[in-house]
Design a binder for these strands. Structure first.
Lengths: 146, 146, 146, 146
DNA sequence: GTGGTCTAGACCACT
DNA sequence: GTGGTCTAGACCACA
């Protein structure tokens, strides 16, 4: 689990960590039950303070994506396959989606291109060997989003 | 031009203003060349400090969406029809898109549903019946979406 | 708003602050909409670090009792009169109640005495105008407390 | 003696064990003189480290609820019928009670409902209600509340 | 070993 | 002025 940070970014470090982990969960790289590095270990690896990692993990815990356990550290609590989101998530999320897509449209990206970007991002979340997933639950193939 | 703010939101007020304006530009409600209320006027209307409005306008100016004239006030600088975005915009934007979509996927929204939300948002930016601009104030119809 | 802390207590300081504020809300001393001292001000008053106050406020915010506003600082979000608790609150709370009452019973406090303590505590939350109790639902009079 | 633990709870495991035992004593399930499983046995049953069980037992010993003998293991030292609590217990306990009840009141549970919960919990400690304690001082009435 | 608490100070963002 | 972020180090609680 290596994640690259941009310490000069205006995005707070703890948010960058959180974002990378969310993306890793979405892409299946971190499945439900996976364990994450300890806060102090990750802090050392990234060359930052452990409190910053702590804050990222705590945020993910509040979002329901992580559970923290004194014994085993942080575990992935949730997954693309765990089920539908908690009520209330979608509304707030769509508000942010609306703002983000508006930004592209206002800058002159046409609708099909925007939708293409969305589809491309989603595709990038299922990069692995579609043939090896035969067993699986089967249903996940719907991802190519068409 | 009415925009509703949530003063208790964790989203800074100046960003809420900026977001609403971006969405208005994306939806065509504010076309290129339209004029916005003066900072002081808008501040009074919203019951906030005019510095806050100023900050929102300045951010939009930096983003290339507004140009500010001492005499004519703030004018919309570009819109969906002005042309493709400046180089560099797309990369940064797709990074944020990736994070946002990952959030939904990690919370269990499946890929088709995510793409459906994207499409629905885009549809909501097309203010139905472009020829109906004479109606003008009846612009509310565009947003029911979904 | 003065609250006394026991810095030697095994109860974390931030929890003591949180507890005192919860009790003040319950007793009507802090009504919905009341403003609390700024984190830094309270920290100075209490002779502790502002981060500790921050943590207490943030906890209360997560519990839905406070809302934090950049402009006006912390405001009481909720009240005995605001309405019934969020679903899920009661179950978790009754678990803790069960443990606490069990402690007294196990130590030999008989049931009526336990119940008497509970009633006494509740009474202490409505200290004002004991003669006006007939009105009952007109209880709002008791709490203006300022 | 079956106790169910939640290893992911924010409540420390040793405290969960302690709480369950306190409740068992309060409900009469564990009477004075009863013997508890050995720390090692219980640890195996629960799938946890025996030091954790040890810590729970030691805490109960400090609280005066258990006595620990090298030969006979852990025995229940007192129960509801052993007599009134040690001096000093009640004050500290009522402080915690006050905080806990305040929490419910602040979240909008009205006084009679709170008192009802207390009464319900106490009733649950009376396993079969042999003589039902007679009049029970009639303290349950919400009179003092409201 | 793990995470949690408290303190401390510097700097930034928001209004 | 307000709160938020990041860093830092010490100490404690838990398993």
């Amino acid at each position: 689990m290596i994640l690259s940070l941009d310490l000069d970014s205006e995005v707070p470090i703890y948010l960058q960590i959180r974002d990378r982990i969310v993306e890793a969960i979405a892409s299946g790289e971190l499945a439900e039950g996976s364990s994450l590095p300890s806060t102090r270990q990750l802090a050392v690896d990234l060359g930052i303070n452990f409190h910053t990692v702590n804050k990222a993990y705590d945020l993910l815990r509040q979002e329901g994506l992580l559970r923290i356990n004194r014994k085993s550290g942080a575990l992935v609590q949730r997954d693309a396959r765990t089920g539908p989101p908690e009520p209330g998530f979608t509304d707030e999320w769509e508000t942010r989606l609306r703002t983000l897509l508006a930004e592209a449209v206002a800058h002159g990206v046409d609708h099909p291109a925007v939708l293409g970007s969305c589809a491309a991002v989603l595709t990038s979340f299922t990069p692995t060997a579609p043939t090896a997933q035969g067993a699986d639950h089967g249903a996940e193939q719907g991802d190519s989003a068409s």
